[in-house]
Each structure stands twice: as C-alpha cells, then as structure tokens.
Nucleic acid binder design. Structure first.
Length: 291
DNA sequence: TAAGCGTGGAG
DNA sequence: TCTCCAAGCTT
C-alpha cells in the first residue's frame, strides 16, 4: 500500500506550528521578501529581524534604495556579516529600477539575472512573494531530503539535482506547493537540525529513511569553514567595522588596522576591499562607496 | 569545482 | 573554552 505523500503531513504541520516571522505576514510584499532573503543568506533569523524592519522603513521600495549611495547600504548592513551582500542588494535595486520599472520581477530567469541572486533566492522570491510553483532548495531542505529520502545524516554538495528532488515532493496546487516549500525549510530549521535533530518531535519520523536505518553517522563531505582567527576575513571585518562606525565620514588610511601586526595582511585587506567595491580611497582617506 | 567571504550565538 | 553553524553567491 503506497504511503501518503509527505506534503499531506508537512503542510498541515506547518499550518499549525509555523513561527510568526515578519516575511510570512500577509502583504509583506516582494521587495520585503527580496530584502529578507538577501539578509538571511548565511545569517540567522534572530539577527535579521530588527535590521530588516529598519531597512524597509528607510528604503520602502527598490527605487528608494537604488537612489541612495551604496555606502549607505553597506553602513546600514551593520553586523549582519558578508557586507558584499549589502552592495549586491544595492546593485540589484538599481537593476530593478532601471530594467523593471522599479518592480521586483516575478520570473525566475529575470530574478536570476539580478546581482546577488542565485538558485535559492530567485525561487524563494517567486514562490514566497508571488506564490508561483517552483522548488525552493536551501541548506535546510537539502538536509531534510538527505535524511528523510536518502538515509544520510548530512547532505552532499549542492547540486542542480536537488531542485528536481524537491520538485517531486511538491503538490500540484500552487498555494499548497508554496506551503510545502516553506514547511520543509521550517522542519529543517526547528526539528531536523544539523547538530541535534529532535526526531522525537518530527512529524515524518515514521517515513524517514535515516531514522529507519538507525540514524547512522554517515560520512560528512561538507567543506569545513576556514579558521577565522588571524585570517584575511578577520582583517577585512575590522576595516569595515571601523568604517561603519565613522560613516558617513571617511577615515585616514593610516588609522585603519593601526594595531594590526601583519602589515602585508593589512594591505591585502584594503586592496581586496577596494576591488570588491566596499571601500573607496580618496587621497589619504578611505570611506564607504559613494557611487 | 572549490575557495573566499563576517558575525555572533549555541552547545 | 572553543568548535560548529546560520534561508548562499560569485569567481
């Protein structure tokens, strides 16, 4: 006898237990969804929420952001991390203003063409903002699928194939399929977590291949994060933190990383930040980008 | 394809 | 204390 589709279990579970998050409220809008997705790329929900609300109050439309200086966006990004995302979000806003009459596009191909938007974010906007029928695959989704469908403890490297695997789990109905995408992500975030999954609370444990196999500790092929202490990233972070604090004023080049012991690394950080467009030299001064 | 890219909370 | 990890994207 065939078992019920997972969506028959997960969609009702999601309706009952989904957390009340700002971007899930009615009328949040495509721009709000887009900004939230940029901020949520590798940054935890709790840190995003307050900054997201401030961001949208300041720049309620893509055109509002596009008309601001990129450095304002970088400064407002505050401690969200990966400040290139602020720059990319600003560029995407400019592209939306110039190519889409200030309206966040609905088509996945058009979304993918925007700066800083990849397979996940494009489909997240199309599905969560516009309610269209696409598979949305993030790291939570891939972990849930690895366990429930493949019986592995960890997902492998991201692959296009993941989209097809998720698409096969979606019900035909558009609204239901959007909920299923959200439900799988939610399950991965609150139940089927990376470190200590709460299998006792899982609504699909009876259908889970990993549980059925005895929850084996299978090989973890994920790439380990490079050491942060003493890294170039840490040096870049220190520069950006100082410039955010001084903004909108620039700082003397000599004042940046003044305590940094490794002068070569200091130069490397400044050069790479300039190459990324995150800082702008102006004689002896260095500031956030003005255009 | 794999490396590079921030920040801070949780276990 | 310290390692792990968090709604990825670009090159």
């Amino acid at each position: 006898m065939p078992s019920a589709p997972l969506s028959d279990i997960l969609v009702p579970w999601y309706r009952q237990f989904a957390r009340d998050l700002p971007w899930r409220r009615d009328g949040f809008g495509a721009w709000g969804t887009l900004v939230s997705e940029f901020m949520l790329q590798q940054t935890p929900v709790a840190r995003v929420i307050p900054l997201l609300e401030a961001w949208l109050a300041r720049w309620p439309t893509p055109t509002d952001l596009a008309n601001a200086a990129p450095g304002e966006a970088v400064a407002a990004w505050a401690n969200l991390g990966y400040p290139r995302r602020a720059l990319w979000l600003h560029r995407a806003a400019v592209e939306i203003r110039d190519r889409h009459n200030g309206v966040v596009p609905r088509e996945v191909d058009q979304l993918l063409a925007l700066t800083g938007i990849g397979d996940y974010t494009a489909r997240a906007v199309a599905v969560f903002a516009y309610g269209d029928h696409h598979p949305v695959v993030d790291t939570n989704t891939r972990r849930v699928m690895a366990r429930a469908l493949s019986g592995r403890a960890h997902p492998g490297a991201a692959h296009k194939r993941d989209l097809e695997q998720m698409a096969a789990l979606l019900p035909d109905d558009r609204a239901e399929s959007a909920l299923m995408n959200a439900a799988v992500m939610e399950l991965g975030q609150v139940i089927c977590t990376a470190r200590s999954p709460k299998c006792g609370d899982c609504p699909i444990r009876d259908a889970c291949a990993w549980v059925a196999a005895g929850s084996p500790a299978t090989e973890d092929t994920r790439r380990k994060q490079a050491k942060y202490e003493g890294s170039d990233r840490q040096a870049r972070g220190a520069v950006m933190k100082a410039l955010r604090a001084a903004a909108p004023d620039p700082l003397p080049r000599a004042a940046l990383l003044v305590d940094w012991h490794d002068l070569e690394q200091r130069e490397r950080a400044l050069i790479s930040l300039e190459n990324d467009g995150l800082i702008e030299p102006d004689g002896e001064l260095v500031g956030l980008p003005t255009r």
